[in-house]
């Protein structure tokens, strides 16, 4: 298993290389950071040259990229163009908030989607199923920022129960995690439903009933347990777009996470912060996918991680 993990980590280096190249090029296409930094003023040519040199932007592109790469592997992501603070510190101090929000979103989604999906499948064709499918459809169709704004208007502005934005103690996480979770729950409930429908048609379900086991116990013990496998896969794949969603939701709720940091840095063309932030999110993604792959062997006995004997 250790061997497998090492192998996977080694493979993830390619992913990181590819992402670093894309971020690096895309950023340099957005315009000159020096021009933005001087704003409306008319700087002298020598002032511009000086700033360029101090930011390391006078070096050839290939050199700039290699410095960035070296930074990734030495965990020294440079300093912010704006504040001069080390980028790693800026990101890690905000990482916690993003991770907490993302996981809270997943938990909300699971709490909603699992019962909705199971009931929809078991009560197929009834009013319950109809309601469940409407819920899924809404979750699929609402843009997350719109839902976030609606929730703010209702719970924060109209009812004044919860804070609208920022971080004001633990209650602040309710609205953003609900927004993320509801959107994800739409797709997830649909998946749980279809996965359950497939499993409930299997013969071992009939066999379990023939033993005199109660219907709900059969549904949970044999049905859901087997339907879980595609659901976990989906969550792993979906984690990327969940992080993407987090970036937007952080903006809507002024949540002090990495997403907000990156968006601000993009508008300021703060190259090191954007590059560092994206790379860290990518690493997080790689790590979660690895966790998902490792979890299979606990969910499905037919899967044994290769190299386990070693």
């Amino acid at each position: 298993m250790l061997l497998y993990v090492l192998k996977r980590l080694l493979h993830s280096i390619y992913v990181i290389l590819a992402i670093s190249l894309i971020v690096f090029i895309a950023l340099r296409l957005t315009g000159d950071p020096v021009a933005v930094m001087f704003g409306a003023g008319e700087p002298t040519k020598s002032a511009i040259e000086h700033l360029r040199a101090s930011l390391g932007l006078d070096k050839p592109l290939i050199m700039q990229y290699l410095i960035f790469l070296k930074g990734i592997f030495t965990l020294n992501l440079g300093t912010s163009f704006r504040t001069g603070q080390p980028v790693s510190g800026m990101i890690f101090s905000r990482m916690g908030a993003t991770v907490v929000l993302a996981f809270a979103g997943v938990i909300v989604a699971l709490i909603i989607a699992i019962p909705v999906g199971i009931i929809s499948a078991v009560k197929r064709g009834t009013a319950w199923d109809f309601l469940g499918r409407i819920f899924s459809l809404l979750g699929l169709s609402f843009p997350n920022f719109w839902l976030g704004i609606m929730l703010i208007m209702f719970f924060a502005v109209y009812l004044d129960w919860l804070p609208a934005s920022g971080y004001d103690g633990p209650v602040s996480i309710i609205l953003p995690s609900l927004t993320l979770g509801l959107i994800l729950a739409g797709v997830l409930a649909r998946l749980v439903r279809s996965s359950m429908l497939e499993v409930l048609n299997k013969q071992y379900i009939t066999v379990a009933k023939s033993k005199g086991t109660s219907e709900w116990l059969v549904v949970l013990r044999h049905g859901f347990r087997n339907a879980l496998i595609p659901v976990v896969t989906f969550l792993g794949i979906q984690f990327g777009s969940l992080l993407g969603g987090t970036v937007i939701i952080e903006q809507v709720f002024a949540w002090p996470g990495v997403g907000q940091l990156i968006i601000n840095a993009i508008s300021e063309r703060d190259y090191p912060v954007v590059q560092g932030g994206v790379i860290i999110l990518a690493l997080l993604m790689v790590f979660v996918n690895l966790l998902v792959d490792l979890s299979y062997q606990f969910i499905d006995p037919r899967i044994k991680v290769e190299g386990r004997k070693a």
Binding site: Q203, T206, V207, S210, D300
Partner: peptide
């Protein structure tokens, strides 16, 4: 009690 046609499909794969 009942036994079925496909023995391989009669057993739940995860238990």
């Amino acid at each position: 009690a009942m036994i079925f046609q496909e023995p391989m499909a009669s057993l739940d794969p995860v238990y």
